[in-house]
Design a protein around this nucleic acid. Sequence first.
DNA 1: TTGTAAGCGTTATCAC
DNA 2: GTGATAACGCTTACAA
Lengths: 335, 335
Amino acid sequence: MDIKIVDVARLANVSPTTVSRVLNNNPIVKPKTRDAVLKVIEELKYVPHAAAKNLRQQKTMTIGVIVSDIKVSYNTDIVKGIQTKAYAQKYKVVICDTQNDLDIEREYLRLLMDRSVDGIILVASLLPEQEIVDLAERGFAVGIIGRRIDRANVLNVHTDNVSAAKEAVEHLIGQGHRDIVFLSGYANAKDSYDRLEGYIKALGMHSIPFRPELVENGNFNETGGYEAFARLKEKGLTFSAVFSANDEMALGVYEYCNEKKIGIPGEVAIVGVDNDRVSKYLTPSLSTIDQPKYDMGFLLAEKLIRSMNGEAEVPRVSVLNSRLIVRQSSTTYSR
Amino acid sequence: MDIKIVDVARLANVSPTTVSRVLNNNPIVKPKTRDAVLKVIEELKYVPHAAAKNLRQQKTMTIGVIVSDIKVSYNTDIVKGIQTKAYAQKYKVVICDTQNDLDIEREYLRLLMDRSVDGIILVASLLPEQEIVDLAERGFAVGIIGRRIDRANVLNVHTDNVSAAKEAVEHLIGQGHRDIVFLSGYANAKDSYDRLEGYIKALGMHSIPFRPELVENGNFNETGGYEAFARLKEKGLTFSAVFSANDEMALGVYEYCNEKKIGIPGEVAIVGVDNDRVSKYLTPSLSTIDQPKYDMGFLLAEKLIRSMNGEAEVPRVSVLNSRLIVRQSSTTYSR
DNA sequence: TTGTAAGCGTTATCAC
DNA sequence: GTGATAACGCTTACAA
């Protein structure tokens, strides 16, 4: 437990420097010496002390990932992508879960600024854009996934929410719907705003008037979706379809419909966003927009690592394509 | 970015020691000095360097959690419990995802042995018991969740798998079933073995002969469950119920039944284990054994922190109760 | 109440 | 090829 490099050095009859060289695979050491040292390391079960190494080298080979909620499959899929790239490059990954709380997110950020990580990735971040920019300006390697942001030194991978939403709504229109609800997320979330834009565009392309009363906020979670849908119903509004800015809120709609015996998709068709793990298991299975979550994580990790390694020409922003997965909840002919 | 304690000290006209005292809330510093120092810290946006601090103090205030798969809700629920306790005590949490690969698990373990964490928690670990014991013997603070293990210096929280399985199977028997399949996990998993024991006990208590041909291995995953169930069906065995050692495998059974139009619970009743996030969304909803995952995480984190702080009398092993959640998949009268 | 100086365990630099 | 030595940035005796 408290064996250090000098202990190894002593037992192997070499200097600490040599041991260090062996540890770092410096090819200059004579094979014979190297083997002797390795034997002692094995014998003593020596493990280098990370803090000492980090202090001396001023880097940690670790990436910090700040996630809104580790239980959401959208986030974990992204994390998987990050991990895969990171490990391949010998980077470790530290995951921090903010529980969707902006203050906790800030606290974590401060925590990670102690240089225990070489770079930071934000997933589903609530942080105001300016604070992210500040971070970058202070010299930290920062990337953000899922949210569109185009600022100096901030790496970004996102999907085109506008056109994805448009595709989803057009799909509903194609199924014969004209009165389509839009369930939005937090008002301040750009994601949500973009989806609204796509929704309006789709309506416009088919000459369907935009009815603002059909837009309701469900705060991106199940309960919020339930309540938003309940409000719409209780107002007595007429509509035959729902486009939900994420699958979680759609779950709330399912629940409400179950309780009130409202048939899906017969009486209400639904399309969500995120392709959450549960959505394909629902009855009826939920149509949704699938984002290439894993790839987004992988790609941003790659960008970040390249930029941490001093590469100047790392493309700052990448846009990946999402795709509509049509399942039972939006198709009248099946079931 | 590279502001250090001396820079703060210089600007505040004090010694580095005083700055350090302010940072660590040492009450001995005069309020006036303290304020002056804080102002400079703020001004310079100084953040202490973790590696230097860790090196000097020989601790990191970080707990490492090694998890089999971050996508499985069983794991994330536990992690949430760990986090909550840890953060309350000012500990950070590092999550490592082994992707159910024993070699990756070993690699992570080696990584964490560099003293970048003060203690290690294993969740759904595949590691042979002896290796865990070795870890503890080398002086690391180690805890393991979900798997029963009673060895010196290894902290443990688990549930009583035997009686939980017994309860589930007795529930099925109570519903009139006598020919009950047991879908097991990896052969070497103690968890799975315990559940088998409970299964056999329950049969015994109701004088139902144990039929070994009704036990099939599904490797704890969806595909495995599908295939195991298919093998049973193709052998032409008769049975009216399935007890699956986890919910994932039950998903496979659902899939098979869907394809072959086998009615659940009419033709086959099913009970799983884990209360996975998806299980309540299935149709029919899946009866399952719910373990207090969050509490398990919380409790083990508490044990670990206490033991890292040198408390001698930390109870090594705790057993929590799981409970049967009866849903539609095992009750003939409903739906 | 504050400051001086040593030391945590590595690795980088420079000799040999 | 190998080794002595300084330095990374902080905390903690001990002194003042």
